[in-house]
Design a protein around this nucleic acid. Structure first.
Lengths: 291, 291
DNA sequence: AGTTGTATTTTGGATACGTAAAGTGTAAAC
DNA sequence: GTTTACACTTTACGTATCCAAAATACAACT
């Protein structure tokens, strides 16, 4: 089996990034900058770009480089028909199995048989899941998959944690918004308010929502709060992607997001904190527990 | 290289457990119960007990089983002269290196060379560290070791997180103390107040302190709070073990712990919450940042 | 100066096999 | 009816080799 998962991951992230940044045709794609942005060398970036050249999404001139050949919202189908890498397939497969019927306790060999994969790939995948926090190593042999945020109890817990920590983050002494990030969040939320429904998928809206919350938390400069919220959202993402979103009033949500961002911009932190608290409470009462 | 790390881990934990439970000579050591308690099969427990039989710490009768042969506080030296397993040695070695001089970015091969170990053992160790949260996988090749709780900033962050979340846990609707655990915490803190200094090591006192806090948090039944506090404490443990404790007034601390436990026992949660808050604030001002 | 093109080095994923250790089932002993 | 003793199964660690892919270094181009 080929192990080119990094190239394919970069390929996917590149397309997502072009859509999030809403780049126009003709935009110069500089390999070294892209490589730096994704934290990899130029090698996998070049491989990803070559694929896009074959698909006529990107135009290439020898010794001059790569230019985006189409508009950002012509990439929908590209993204959907993207082949999955071995690692992604394995991860998806484990997710699907676990959420359909909790895996419980399993040995490595058992997983290698059941998911038809090598030990190295399996271990790489397990360490990703380990980071996400829904599997732990047994003392001796085997791994233990744990239940995740899908029942009423877990919902309550996640909202209680967010209600306590997110509004408090805004009031921390160490809170210091980054002007660039703030501007970019405002721009994004304005775009969502105007064109969100037509131009963005449910998944992209969901990701933007999480980006909104996590960016604000990050300004509080507390690694423990941030890490806990990130893990919580990672679990939410796993579960909530799975249930097709009954489109809740997204425009209302982006209204609320914008009010909070404007309050932060005006340095009215206690107002922002109150608004954020109300926002989370509203989300809590809107979303019924999944099943 | 032998890979008997589980046996040796059980051996260590068995001795620690005997000390924590303060078992007398003659106590029956039932293999199946011990195995169940540590979440392993009887095989490694038997191996550990056989070592103890050789050291005359445990007495063995064919077809009858194992009996503790000495008093719990005769085990000090046993614990100190315990050989380390390969995994423990590697883990210690990585810790020591990282805290002496942060490792930063490293490839697996580089680590295999530097620490003279196999890939399998290295990966096992790295996934432990991954769970503890002080290393992350690079996108492509290599791993990134991150700075941990050892500077003033991280101290501030950890105490802010604890001050917000620990007192709030006691006031949560879902808070429900477990009577057995409560009784055992009270007993332990009373013992510490009376004999803590003579009979327990600095490490054991430290572990008892963390057990106190984490057990209380666990009664709030919020997995996100509990997990975040556990990770925070795991990092504190790493750093604070390293600096020989300037024995802070332990008896005062166990006084405070007992007051909180008594308040919980009397179901006076808001009092308990206030006391806990004061307790953490006091700890914050007592402990100076490490360096 | 910054970016691209390309050759070179290094990494780590795939695979396989031998073996010590961990797990498991069951009869015997208490 | 537990607990132990022991035979038996399964697991996963150690080790080695091969090679695609990622990182890196630097010359060439704009």
């Amino acid at each position: 089996m080929k192990h080119n998962h990094l190239q394919q991951k970069i390929l996917r992230e590149l397309l997502q990034w072009i859509r999030v940044e809403r780049l126009e045709a003709g935009h110069k794609l500089v390999t070294s900058q892209i490589a730096k942005q994704f934290g990899v060398s130029r090698t996998p970036v070049l491989a990803a770009l070559d694929v896009l050249v074959k698909d006529d999404v990107v135009h290439y001139d020898k010794n001059k480089g790569y230019l985006l050949a189409c508009h950002y919202d012509a990439l929908d189908e590209q993204l959907e028909t993207l082949p999955e890498s071995g690692l992604e397939k394995l991860y998806q497969s484990i997710c699907d199995n676990h959420f359909a019927d909790p895996l419980g306790e399993l040995s490595e060999s058992e997983m290698m048989r059941r998911f038809d994969t090598s030990r190295a790939l399996l271990l790489k995948c397990l360490s990703k899941i380990l980071q996400e926090g829904w599997v732990v190593r047994n003392e001796g042999h085997g791994w233990q998959f744990i239940e995740v945020v899908n029942d009423e109890t877990a919902y309550r817990e996640s909202y209680e944690f967010r209600l306590l920590n997110e509004p408090a983050a805004l009031l921390a002494e160490s809170f210091q918004p980054d002007p660039n990030e703030l501007a970019s969040l405002i721009e994004e939320q304005q775009f969502i308010q105007n064109h969100g429904f037509e131009k963005l998928s449910a998944k992209e809206l969901y990701d933007a929502n999480i980006r909104f919350h996590e960016t604000i938390i990050s300004w509080a400069n507390n690694r423990f709060t941030l890490q806990a919220i990130q893990r919580l959202n990672q679990l939410r993402r796993l579960v909530e992607y799975r249930q097709i979103e009954t489109a809740m009033s997204r425009n209302i949500q982006s209204n609320e997001h914008l009010d909070i961002l404007y309050a932060i911009q005006a340095n009215e932190m206690s107002l922002a904190s109150t608004l954020l608290k109300q926002h989370i409470e509203r989300a809590r009462s809107t979303k019924a527990p999944s099943r």
